Every structure is written in C-alpha cells, then in structure tokens.
Amino acid sequence: MADMTLATHRREAIPDLPPAVRANRAMLALDLGTTTGWALHGIDGLITSGTVSFRPGRFDGGGMRYLRFTNWLTEIDRLSGPVAAIWFEEVRRHAGTDAAHVYGGLMATLTAWAELRGIPYEGVPVGTIKRHATGKGNAPKEAMIAAARARGFSPADDNEADAIAILLWALETKGGLQ
C-alpha cells in the first residue's frame, strides 16, 4: 500500500471554468516521482493535496511501483471522480538515470491509464509552472513552497507544492481546455 500524506483546503470555486470541468468532474495535477505530489480540484470546489510514496519495498519486483500507482489513480478516480482532466509536470532533464527511469515509467503508466478511460492529459513544462507560481521560470524548491503558502496552502514538501502550482495554473489558465 502506498504511503500518503494529505492536506485539505477550502478554496473559492473558480466560476469561469469550461463546461467539461464544471460538469461535476474532478481535475488532478501530479508531480511524478518516487514521492509523487498531487493536488485535486473536487466537484465541490475543494482542493485537496498531498504526497504519495511509490518507493519499492524490499521484496517488490520491478513493476510493483507502477501497479501501486495504477491502483492509486483508480482509487482517486473512484473516490473523487470522475476525473475530467490530468495535468502533470513535464520534466525534460533529470538529475540522474534512476530518476529518469522512474519518471518515464510513471508517465507511461499515467498516460496509458488515462487513454483507457478517455481522460485528457497534458504535460506542463517545469518553467511554465515555476513562472506562473513565482514569476521566475527557474525558481528553487523553497520559492515554490513559499508561493503555495502565500496562496493559503500548507505543502509538506516541494512535490506537493509543485502539484498545487500545476493545479492552480490549470484552473487559472483553463489548462488549455476550451
């Protein structure tokens, strides 16, 4: 079972969302990684966020991380959905090979899961997210956390702060939905 931290915030509903989003559907934003940050805009206007760990266990096979991620997505959709759209941080450069492999596996799992359900998804470049949240496209982790706190959130770490920033970008720019 995935380890998960959770924070809930009551936010004012954004009135000019596109019809696809207003139709009693949730929107999900993800910062993919071994510790995945997530933020969910529920059908009631509530934004919930947190982190979930997909660190493999001692006796796990190579695919267990991705099976747990699939199960987690299914639970989010079942409990909070249906999910109308998913946005995720689109990373083009990684600090290490292992991080790149994990990101690629999670992104493949996410996109396949969404395709099977007909859920639109979009990667958002890191610089776009940082610029929207802080005004600087190369903002450090601490600035992203501070930006989320300035908006009334209490992120546990930079993963959750990034997911919140992605969701706010999607809500405020309509995330490319027309």
Rank of each mutant, 00 (worst) to 15 (best):
A114K: 03
K130L: 05
E115I: 11
G176A: 11
A147K: 04
A156Y: 05
P56H: 08
Y103K: 05
T109S: 15
R93N: 14
A84G: 11
I166R: 02
G127N: 03
I164Q: 05
G105S: 10
D60G: 12
N138E: 05
M107G: 00
Y121C: 02
A163D: 02
N159K: 02
E172G: 10
A112M: 14
G50Q: 04
A170P: 05
G135W: 12
A85I: 02
A146Y: 06
F88E: 09
I164L: 08
T48I: 06
Y121I: 03
E89L: 14
I47R: 01
K141P: 01
A108P: 09
E160D: 07
P82Q: 13
T48Y: 04
L46C: 12
T74Q: 01
F69Y: 00
G152H: 07
Y121S: 01
L79I: 08
A99R: 05
I86V: 15
D157G: 13
Y103R: 00
K174W: 15
A148Y: 01
A114Y: 08
P82M: 14
G96K: 13
D158Q: 11
W87R: 15
N159I: 03
W169V: 10
N138H: 08
D162K: 07
R65E: 06
A85D: 05
A147L: 02
I76E: 07
T134W: 07
F153K: 04
V91K: 05
T109M: 14
A99W: 02
T48G: 02
T173N: 14
N71W: 02
L110M: 11
F153C: 04
I86D: 00
L106P: 12
V124L: 13
A170I: 05
A139K: 00
T111W: 01
R78Y: 15
L79N: 11
G96I: 11
T51S: 07
K130C: 03
A170H: 05
A100P: 04
L79H: 13
D60M: 12
H101V: 14
P120Q: 09
T128W: 03
L106T: 11
H101R: 14
P120H: 09
R151F: 02
L110T: 08
P140A: 10
L106K: 10
L177A: 10
L79V: 09
L46Q: 12
L171K: 08
L106V: 12
F153Y: 13
L106W: 13
V91W: 01
W169D: 12
P125A: 03
G50D: 03
E142H: 06
G118W: 04
L106A: 12
A95N: 15
G152K: 07
Y121L: 06
V126E: 08
G81W: 11
E89I: 14
A170L: 06
H132F: 15
G62T: 09
S53V: 03
A150I: 01
S49T: 00
F88C: 09
S80G: 03
A108M: 13
I145C: 00
A148W: 02
N71D: 07
I129V: 15
R68D: 04
A108F: 10
L168A: 09
S49A: 00
G152Q: 05
G57F: 05
I47W: 03
